[in-house]
Design a protein around this nucleic acid. Structure first.
Lengths: 261, 261
DNA sequence: GAGTGGTCTAGACCACACG
DNA sequence: GTGTGGTCTAGACCACTCC
């Protein structure tokens, strides 16, 4: 086993044993280098491994710290039925609270929400997902949501609608109408679309450089990649969204009810 | 922007533009160092960034290659109802195929399956998840499944049952009975337990050193962490399993049907 | 044997945090 | 100012792959 691996393993074991604990500082790199009798670049390589594992966090000018685990946002698939139940309610009712507030347990005022609409032709991937021909005009809607006190959003989402399906209501083409009380299902309701089911596909990977930038992710944090497809009662896929969620603060919850014997 | 970041960005852009393509080789480190007019350690740092992003793969003695994306196993929550439907069928029927084969589209012969049972007292986490007191005896069942041609499993799962609930059938305490035709729901059926719903919680993170080892993961691959809870018709959580899935070859699919208006 | 990436060293200088 | 991590260099030797 290489020296840097030995050092990394020793430090990992110590952290798991609780010395130092989450939030506490590790000794300086020079101290560690001395202790393990290796050069500074080698101990830095060891710390790089632990950082990539998400175990530690290095703060420039301050030191190396044990990362604290955090899970703040739980996102459950029961939100879809909940949203559907509200889609036809009065504006006053719909304005009370949204699905994100439901997930996070926060008030609307605690959240900063942004939405930008534009129009793009369907590429091969989206055309297949939406069941339309390539080049079909789509409304692209880019969303970000963050806590008011924080600098970075906890999710970024891109939603695609087939433009032809929503032109009946011009208000659906205008991002100044966001946040739309009641969400997408309420929007679709205005053009006579009812959802039959929601399909969600989840994978995980390290963030791209851009995602790490936008979400303010530390090294050693993965992202959950969610593609959500909404299928209406006629079997058409009427919306596709791609959502990126930070893996260190998001838990996705899926409940599957079973038929009784 | 640092030199290594510049180099990483330039290489990233080239890969995204398709030069080199997935599977193709990058120039040797010495060549890249010359091209970007930086030292070898610096270009190595740049490549380290791209590797951590999952964009490239470095093969000792051979070169640096653009990683090929792969998604082989799709795991859908419809499996739960499917398993429930089969739980009460005849042995002959149940033996035909299992949920994993259904997910992967493979035959039983293509897969190598291993199961080990032992007994552990419930820790705080498991006690909370199962709704029992700490120290309650649990049956721990450790599973691994891999393709016959491959060296590493594509999932590792640890399942916990409350021992008191399954002692009525001693065969459920014996790992020599695995793989049990029809799966866990069929096993639970033998002691009179019917499931009402399955709750799954998904997060993502980089693999621990041990997980990377067991699953044979390359640097720059994240894992999906799944905690599945099975709730029976009396509202008890009767099984909890923790599943680790490689993010680069797994897609989890969740379908949420909605009630009609 | 030639070419490749993996490990390791010694040391320099810079940028940031904090008292 | 002092201590911390971040970047960068020049170079050595090793281990693996392939011809």
């Amino acid at each position: 086993m290489a020296k840097y691996e030995k050092a990394a393993e020793a430090l990992r074991d110590e952290i798991r044993a609780g010395h130092p604990q989450a939030g506490e500082r590790l000794p300086a790199e020079t101290v560690l280098a001395e202790r393990f009798r290796v050069s500074l670049p080698t101990i830095r390589q060891a710390l790089g491994v632990l950082q990539a594992e998400g175990l530690i966090e290095r703060r420039h000018g301050r030191g190396t710290y044990v990362r604290e685990p955090r899970h703040l946002v739980a996102r459950t698939n029961e939100r879809h039925q909940w949203e559907k139940d509200r889609a036809r309610q009065s504006l006053a009712e719909r304005e009370k609270t949204g699905a994100t507030e439901r997930d996070t347990g926060l008030q609307v005022d605690d959240l900063v929400f942004s939405a930008v609409y534009d129009e793009v032709p369907a590429n091969a991937d989206l055309a297949a997902a939406l069941g339309v021909r390539e080049g079909e005009p789509l409304v692209r809607r880019s969303y970000q949501t963050r806590y008011r006190q924080e600098d970075f959003p906890f999710n970024v989402a891109t939603s695609y609608l087939v433009r032809a399906l929503v032109t009946a209501n011009p208000r659906l083409l205008d991002d100044a109408e966001e946040p739309w009380p009641g969400g997408t299902q309420s929007q679709l309701h205005t053009v006579g679309i009812e959802l039959d089911r929601v399909e969600e596909r989840v994978t995980a990977r390290p963030p791209s450089a851009e995602e790490a930038e936008v979400l303010g992710l530390h090294p050693g944090v993965s992202v959950l990649v969610l593609r959500k497809s909404c299928v209406d009662t006629e079997g058409r896929v009427v919306e596709v969204s791609d959502v990126i969620l930070p893996g260190d603060r998001t838990e996705m919850v899926f409940v599957t009810p079973l038929e009784r014997w």
